[in-house]
Amino acid sequence: MRTIYEKPETLIDTPTHFCPGCGHGIVLRLIAEIIDAWGIRGKTIGLAPVGCAVLAYNYLDIDMCEAAHGRPPAVATGIKRVHPDHVVFAYQGDGDLAAIGTAEIIHAANRGENITFIFVNNAVYGMTNGQMAPTTLINQKTATTPSGRDPVNYGYPIRVCELLSVLDGTSYLERVCLSSPENIRKTKKALEKGFKTQIEKRGFSLIEILSPCPIYWRMDANEAMKHIDEVMSKTFPLGVVKDWEQMN
């Protein structure tokens, strides 16, 4: 009998706390697939953020560390100094990485830390019931922007990849999304490239993943995927923003 679908070994067989239609489960699975395929479980250390992915360490069967809200880049830096030849990745949401942890991500990038950052951008604070995120779209309604995000009061969505791209310390930055099987395959490729960047000691890599949050976007799962393609990716254009292989 041909096996067409199975659970990666590194993904723990347990129900998750994610809401229906959430993208986190997909990203965690992709990470587990890569760890399995590359046989790097024994030398990989992951960081879980504060936010929806806070319990990532319950789903991945690798050594993992929790970090205070926004601090994964600093904690990962401390881990990487002890284990420079291990694969260290930080898994962060938009509030964690682009609001409370802005200083930490910018300076980790600026130091060119040889760490892979997986930045899940769903444009909303899911864990705390749907407040505005730094990446919330203009006019998007959230619990704290009830009549939509008005840039006059709330500023603009932050494009993290573009922001970091001007720093000499960054090596690989790409924005991908989870809106279709094809895009999920592209996401996996980007993650692989991120890990490869680190393993080859090429420096700082960050993969920004546009991920659906149907609950707080007040949509069904299909609409959420469509929303990524038709709306969200207009503000956050997909594609490679910086790549050491294409730089000279």
Partner: peptide, 26 residues
């Protein structure tokens, strides 16, 4: 050994957290 002049006190203590978690004396 590793020396980093961190971007803030907050980053510095969290780097300590990371190295301590990884088994180093920080």
């Amino acid at each position: 050994g590793a020396f980093i002049q961190a971007e803030s006190e907050i980053a510095a203590i969290n780097m300590v957290y990371g190295s301590a978690a990884a088994g180093g004396r920080a």
